[in-house]
Computed example of a mutant assay.
Amino acid sequence: MKSHFMFSKQKRSGIFLLVILIILAQYIYFFLDFSSNEITNVNEDELRLYKSEVDSLRKVALDLKALKIFPFNPNYITDYKGYSLGMSNEEIDRLHQFRATNKWVNSAKDFKNVTKVSDSLLAEISPYFKFPDWVTNPKPKKYNKFYSSSSKPKIVTQKIDLNVATALQLQKVYGIGEGFSKRIIDYRYKYQGFVSTDELSEIWGLTPEVIGRIKAQFVVKTPRKIKTYNLNTATRDQLVTIPHIDYEIANSIIEERILRDGFKNIEDLTKVERFPIRKLQIIRLYLYL
């Protein structure tokens, strides 16, 4: 420590002189005025131009910070989205309560009726509403011009034979288009005609409602010839020739027939193990008692 604080007379004089210079410099800095008294001439036009540029840049910055609204479906407005659009909590709650009933807003008018927003807010945000295409551009429903008259119940003699019906005649039934009419005719061609209108259930895509409408307008007047079998005497090899019956089901039918000492009616087949109950109407076409 002595080596750091032991100074010679010359060093002490130097330190004393340095302290005096520092005090003198501080005195000059605080008590003397170094500012210039010269007045610079300012160009007022350039100053106004500069201020206008600063103002325009400030406006651009504010616009960039402002909320940007992109097209949206008003049915899915969240609390935050509604608040940012300027909606009140009550208006947002009305929309959510309406949607909770599984109903939809399909127009700006519906939105106003549900939320009760002001006209000014609606005018501001409605241009950004985006609804699905099926709402904004609904396709007109195609109704067959013959449907209303041809859908009336008919007696058997008035019905058209399904085995000679044309595609256009089939398409007069509501629910039958070009695709279904082609499938019906292809099935008829493949099996050389229908045995019964119950065979319509074999055509893929036809619903029970559409089949019911077909049966109201068509009937099989010229059924194709098929071989039928007595349910109580048919052999296994004969049963497997019937659609939807394989060897396993045929064996089960024969076992059930033995246990019952013969079937009393065709519906008893539904008690057979693994029997295709849904195909009973087709299978019964090939059986008798």
Rank of each mutant, 00 (worst) to 15 (best):
Val210Phe: 02
Pro208Cys: 04
Glu199Ala: 04
Ile203Gly: 09
Gly179Cys: 00
Val195Ile: 15
Thr157Ser: 15
Asp161Gly: 05
Ile184Leu: 03
Ile155Asp: 01
Asp161Lys: 13
Ala216Pro: 02
Gln192Pro: 04
Gln169Ile: 04
Ser150Leu: 13
Ile203Trp: 04
Lys215Ala: 05
Ser150Gly: 06
Glu209Ile: 13
Asn163Ile: 10
Gly205Asp: 07
Lys152Arg: 13
Gly193Trp: 07
Tyr174Ser: 13
Ile203Ala: 08
Gly193Arg: 03
Gly205Lys: 08
Asp198His: 14
Gln217Tyr: 11
Lys190Glu: 14
Ser151Tyr: 05
Ala167His: 06
Ile203Gln: 12
Ala165Trp: 07
Pro223Thr: 14
Val210Glu: 00
Gly177Arg: 11
Tyr187Asp: 03
Val220Trp: 09
Ser196Pro: 04
Tyr187Cys: 05
Ser150Ile: 10
Pro153Asn: 10
Glu202Ser: 12
Val195Asn: 01
Tyr187Asn: 03
Thr166Phe: 03
Phe180Trp: 10
Glu178His: 09
Gly179Arg: 09
Ser149Ala: 13
Lys182Glu: 14
Val173Ala: 03
Gly212Val: 00
Thr157Asp: 14
Pro223Asp: 12
Gly205Met: 04
Lys215Met: 10
Tyr189Pro: 00
Ile214Ala: 04
Lys190Gln: 14
Pro153Thr: 11
Phe218Gln: 07
Val210Thr: 15
Val156Cys: 00
Val164Leu: 12
Ile203Val: 11
Lys152Thr: 12
Gly177Ala: 05
Val210Asp: 01
Ser150Gln: 13
Arg213Lys: 15
Ile203Cys: 08
Arg183Gly: 01
Asp186Lys: 13
Tyr191Ile: 11
Val210Cys: 08
Glu199Val: 09
Arg188Thr: 11
Glu178Pro: 09
Gly193Tyr: 07
Glu199Lys: 04
Gln171Lys: 15
Ile176Gln: 04
Thr166Gln: 05
Phe194Thr: 03
Ser181Leu: 05
Ile185Trp: 06
Lys182Ser: 14
Glu178Ala: 12
Ile214Gly: 05
Trp204Leu: 10
Tyr187Arg: 09
Gly175Ser: 05
Lys159Asn: 02
Phe180Thr: 12
Glu178Leu: 09
Ser149Gly: 06
Ser196Phe: 08
Arg213Trp: 02
Leu206Phe: 07
Lys154Leu: 15
Phe218Thr: 07
Val173Pro: 11
Glu209Ser: 15
Ala216His: 01
Ser149Asp: 13
